[in-house]
Nucleic acid binder design. Structure first.
Lengths: 215, 215
DNA sequence: GAGCGAGCGTTTGTATACAAGGTAAAGTAC
DNA sequence: GTACTTTACCTTGTATACAAACGCTCGCTC
């Protein structure tokens, strides 16, 4: 694999998994030595991360890991609602029934065959699988591109707020509602069901981290 | 100005203004010589353009200017509708009245004071000013980022389809409708008015370039 | 003692040299 | 004559060396 790609993947993972906390400076020489690549491919990786919004250029042209305040989370969900409701609409219009029928069964039984992940990650895997299926069914390159960038930020949010069992059960039923709407090719309902899910999801996140307001 | 930034701006302008046609290969040595920069900053510029979607990597890792088919235009508008209706909603919620009152007056009189552009570009300037005002009023960094990327592609579409006087007049009235809804803080109406405008705009574009279906 | 300025050091920005990969063309064998 | 293989060139990928800009600190002056 190309060194620039390696550096990009490594840094992206570290940022999403909070191994690199917001505000961490990413000096070029230091980081390139740490990752075992030269400065040239590292700079390319940083460029991509900056374009993606996970890294920003701080004072003095230094690259630092982007912060993720409460306001950021709210704004992220405002963008997410715009993109995912549209994706749900388009998916309802163009979906391949078999894909979503399979997902529906998995949601109802809670199984996820091919996944080798741990039990506690399973609900997330299933939700991610639905996201991927909707993105693909929407069939828009540009929408998919915007969603891809968004997902990185959202993965970071997920790490900062954990769901309880009750929320997970409710989320599953919300997901089934979305799948049913897509299968019924009901665009308006698919969008509404997505909107409902996102509002509940955001409310759960906000409720789980009020003590420290700013991050 | 940094060489990488220069190269980025130059290439972006050339692509948007169709001076570089879709499919044009951007060999690193050739392009770097042409723009008068070294390969290193050029590669950074290309990275950004690839992330933005204006350039894609073709077979053999060569960079080529992205094509813009009829399908691309439709997909672009599907993304645009998602982003701009949401931006309009948020702008209606958070707008600064004076900004939009000023824009409303400009739309009705057709004037644009500070602009030094030619007469035929004026309607576009005004529409762009409204876009900027809405983006800022929406007050979401992430939404704004997604819109910024989108605008580059849309500028390219605009170049491939010209509006007649009739369409421009209708567009202006549609814009006034959007401004009024934002001023009235009617989020649903602002979104609907935006949706209407985008559908009409797309219909006009599609009608103006049917002869050659694929581009 | 405080504020301004100059110089040094560390940082990013750029260029070039080198390496590796992939593609196309040409030649040979079937 | 066609298909496959091999080789050579051209392209991109990486590393390193050099230049310039910025910040910080120390010293001088008011």
């Amino acid at each position: 694999m190309r060194a620039s790609e390696t550096a990009y993947q490594l840094l992206r993972d570290e940022i999403i998994q909070w191994k690199l906390e917001p505000g961490t400076p990413l000096g070029e020489v230091e980081t390139s030595l740490r990752l075992g690549v030269s400065r040239t491919p590292l700079r390319e990786a940083l460029s991509r991360l900056i374009a993606e919004g996970l890294v920003r250029t701080g004072p003095g042209r230094t690259a630092v890991v982007t912060s993720l305040s409460l306001r950021d989370i709210v704004e992220l969900f405002e963008l997410r609602e715009a993109l995912e409701t549209q994706a749900a609409r388009l998916a309802a219009r163009r979906r391949e029934p078999s894909v979503f029928e399979a997902l529906r069964a998995e949601f109802l039984t809670g199984s996820r065959d091919a996944s080798g992940a741990s039990a506690e990650d399973r609900p997330y895997d299933l939700a991610d699988a639905l996201d991927v299926a909707i993105d693909e069914a929407a069939g828009s390159v540009y929408l998919q591109g915007a969603l891809r960038d968004l997902r990185g930020h959202l993965a970071r949010v997920r790490r900062s707020a954990h769901s309880n069992a009750d929320r997970l059960a409710r989320a599953t039923s919300e997901h089934v509602l979305i799948v049913d709407a897509i299968l019924a090719q009901d665009e308006a309902l698919a969008a509404s069901a997505t909107s409902v899910h996102l509002h509940n999801s955001l409310a759960n996140i906000l409720a789980s981290l009020p003590p420290e307001a700013a991050r």
